[in-house]
Every structure is written in structure tokens, then in C-alpha cells.
Design a protein around this nucleic acid. Structure first.
Lengths: 234, 234
DNA sequence: CGTATTCTTGACTTATATCAATGTCGGTGG
DNA sequence: CCACCGACATTGATATAAGTCAAGAATACG
């Protein structure tokens, strides 16, 4: 584990700590350990004892679950500023999934037994955490609804739109998903196969909606994609 | 709204209030309103302003969402002792779904602005609430995983097993799901159609796994159903 | 450069939805 | 109390979206 100097201003800017005083923030940071995670490496693995909880400072993580028969799904993508891995606060003793760096990342970590301190010393933060989980629950329900009622193409459209919203970088000709993401990854986020995703993206490229590439995706016409996601024909 | 005398001992027995003192419990109950909900009626409807949060004392509720194009899904089933409808605590102003009584039910309700009181006067309860949401998040992820990786028959098997676990009543020949549930309901919980559910249940009945009926389901061989759910051939 | 991923594309198969018809239960009112 | 009606369920025939199998092309990397 690489311990590095922690950028105080970076943490300060997170909305999570809006209502935290400088003094309290310093205390929190003092008890945290910063760690660099190279692309492809895990912050923690599914089934491990939940010894720490984390905050993503920089980079991008995929939270993955493997089923008993070896199939993989991506539960969610972690963006900078997100808390993650607080399984213990939700009465679990182990991590329900693995957190893998999709890009070179920097995380802050706290020992699990710091959670009550984290929360009690700072009630506003408890509310934030609660809202975060609530949001996540809603996202999960949205995904369930989409998987129940929509066909694959619309689901892929929704996922891509969500990704450019959360991790989009503006370019000359469109908006790029700002981390390496394979067809397989998109398939694991939508409950389909990489073949189907590849076909769909090829079709979209032919229509001028997107521009593909190896582990790359540039959305040229977000409005058109929205139309498609909402089921307004074609 | 029907206001009735509140059964103190009934509330006391809920694990949610394990760490709540009698005095605190009385205060909570004093500020609550009890309400009887006949079968088929809604406690609240999707899109309504989230004015109250609730506790189910008796009966059974289905939380449903309707999509923009009119398709329905069942988000979850609420069992006695469950908190529900606390959208406001999760930073929402409206209810994301409708709560419909699947059986004659009794709920306790509190005004939304009681939530901070509810939580601050009773930190143990806040932890409980957090864990409840965490559990729900996990359930949602389980459902997403199942919908991503399993075929319909196994998903239906998983849902039926979950229902007999949460709402099973032992009978001479098996375990009955203890509220009225239609094929359509099961379809809306698994992301399929009532036709497919009907075919699956007919096949199971032929194998002696279950016994169907109009809005009824009796599981005769839970172990066999588990095998099926885990994908161990058959 | 060659080797390994990742991606594309075609041919074929299959699970499940859709369409359609009929059957059955259970409550309501004549 | 029985007949009827509406809701729920079953089942067959057919259509189709998407998975599987298979081969090859493109791209990145050591």
C-alpha cells in the first residue's frame, strides 16, 4: 500500500463535506490513508473481510460481482467524490463485490471502526451518507425497471447516456466517456452479451450517433440517443 | 383516514425498536396515526408529495412503479414490521412508487417532518434505518444480478423461494404464500409475462413441486425448487 | 514484429414474447 | 340460490429479439 500526502483542497471541494468544518475535516483526513491504485488492480475483492471504507479522490472504479457459476456483472461505476466499500455500515462483514480501477486511481481509506466516529462527530455527514445510499437504491430500482420493461438497445442507450452524464468529457465532435470501457463492460452493465453490444454500437455508428473504438466511445448526438432511449421510435 | 387505538405490544415486538426505551416508544407512538387499508387500496400513490412515512403493522403491501409507457413492475413486497415510504429521508419530495394493499392491512404513519425527530432522539433507530436501506440495496443488486444472468424459470424460482421465506405459512402438504398473489404479480416481480409464469407453474405442478390456484400458490417441495433456482439441472 | 486482447460480423438456434382462443373460478345481483 | 359476468389462468401457434457458435479483422502492447 502506497501512502502519499493528501491533497486537502481536493477533499474540501467535495460536496460530501459541504457542512464539515475545517477542523473536523483535518481530523478526518488525519485518520485516513491515501493509496494509489493502478489500472486493473483491485481496491478490495468480493468476499474479503470489510476492514476499510473508502472515498475515491481521482480516477474511476468498476464495482463487479461474480456469480456462483462465474458470470460477471458490473454493479456500478464509482466516480471521484463517491464513498464506496462501506459494507460494514450496512451490517455486512464482507464486501459484496470487487472494486477494480478502470483507470489509474487514488483512494482515501479509513478503518471500518472509524465509521461511527465519522458519522457521530458529524451528523450532516450521516445525512449525506443516507442520501447517497438512497440515491443508489433508486438507481438500482431504475435499472431493475429498465431490465424488466425495455429491450436491449434502449437499455444500452440509457447506460451510455448515464455514463456521459457522470463521466463525460467534451470534445470537438461530441462527448467522450472519460475512461477505458470495453464492449464487454457495457454488456455487463446491461445484462446482455458483448456481441449484441457490438452490433448495436455498429448500427449507431452507421446512423452517426456515436463513434466507437477499442475501449473507447464518443457520443456524437446525445439528443438522438435520448430519443432512442425513451423509445421514441428508431 | 381511519384512526384506531394502537397496539403497543405489537409495536414493541418489532426488532426495529429493540433498543428503544418504553418511554421513547410511547412518544413515537403518540405522534403516530394508525390507519386501516382495505385490500386493493393504496397507502400512497406514485408521484404524490411525500407527506408521511409508514410502518406496516399487519397485512401485506406491494410497492409498484408504472413506467412512462404504462408498464407496471413490482419493486418489492412490504411485510409486517417494515418501514416504508420514507422517500423524504432519501432527499426525494415525492413517492417513487405506489404502495398497494395486497391484503387487508394496518399501517402506522408519521408526518415527514417527524423523521429527524424519529432519528435524532434515537440514534439506534437511525442505525436500524440505515441497515434496512442497506439490505434493500443488496436485495436490489441481487435482483439485478439474477435478471442479468439467469433465465426466466430460475428467476421465478428465486422469487417464489423468497416469498415463502418472507411470507410463508406452513400447511399440511407444504408452505403457502400467505397473501393473494396473481401470475401477473409474479411476472411483474421477475420481468416476464403472465403467460410465461403460467407455463412455468404448470410445468412445476406436473413435477409435483407446487400446487397452483387462482391467486394462490402452495410450494410442496421447497428443496426441489431450490435445486432448480441454483441451476442444478432438472 | 508477433502475440494477445478486443472488436466485428455472419449464420444459426433458442428462449421468451406476442397473438389468440378457451377455460375456470368466485363474487354479485336478479 | 343460481346464473352470469368479470377477472384470472391455461394452452397452442407463431414471431422475434437476442444468445450462441464460429471465424476473422483491427488494435494495442511487449
Amino acid at each position: 500500500m502506497t501512502v502519499a500526502a493528501i491533497d486537502r483542497t481536493l477533499v474540501r471541494s467535495l460536496s460530501l463535506f459541504d457542512k464539515t468544518s475545517d477542523a473536523e475535516l483535518d481530523k478526518l483526513i488525519a485518520s485516513a490513508v491515501s493509496r494509489r491504485v493502478p489500472q486493473g488492480e483491485a481496491v478490495f475483492e468480493q468476499g474479503q473481510a470489510a476492514s476499510h471504507f473508502y472515498l475515491l479522490l481521482h480516477g474511476r472504479l468498476k464495482v463487479m460481482q461474480v456469480t456462483a457459476d462465474g458470470q460477471q456483472i458490473i454493479v456500478r461505476v464509482v466516480h471521484p467524490g463517491d464513498l464506496f466499500g462501506f459494507a460494514r455500515a450496512l451490517q455486512r462483514v464482507d464486501y459484496p463485490g470487487s472494486a477494480i480501477a478502470a483507470a489509474e486511481s487514488v483512494v482515501l481509506s479509513w478503518a471500518t471502526d472509524m465509521w461511527p466516529v465519522f458519522v457521530e462527530q458529524n451528523p450532516a455527514l450521516a445525512v449525506s451518507a443516507m442520501q447517497t445510499i438512497g440515491q443508489r437504491l433508486e438507481e438500482a430500482h431504475t435499472r431493475i425497471r429498465e431490465m424488466s420493461t425495455e429491450e436491449v438497445e434502449r437499455r444500452v442507450a440509457h447506460v451510455v447516456l448515464r455514463l456521459i452524464k457522470q463521466a463525460g468529457r467534451k470534445e470537438a465532435t461530441g462527448v467522450r466517456i472519460d475512461f477505458q470501457i470495453s464492449r464487454q463492460d457495457i454488456a455487463e452493465m446491461t445484462g446482455t452479451t458483448l456481441h449484441t453490444v457490438s452490433r448495436i454500437l455498429s448500427a449507431w455508428e452507421a446512423k452517426g450517433l456515436v463513434e466507437g473504438g477499442r475501449q473507447k466511445l464518443l457520443v456524437i448526438n446525445p439528443a438522438g440517443l435520448s430519443q432512442l432511449a425513451e423509445g421514441n421510435y428508431q
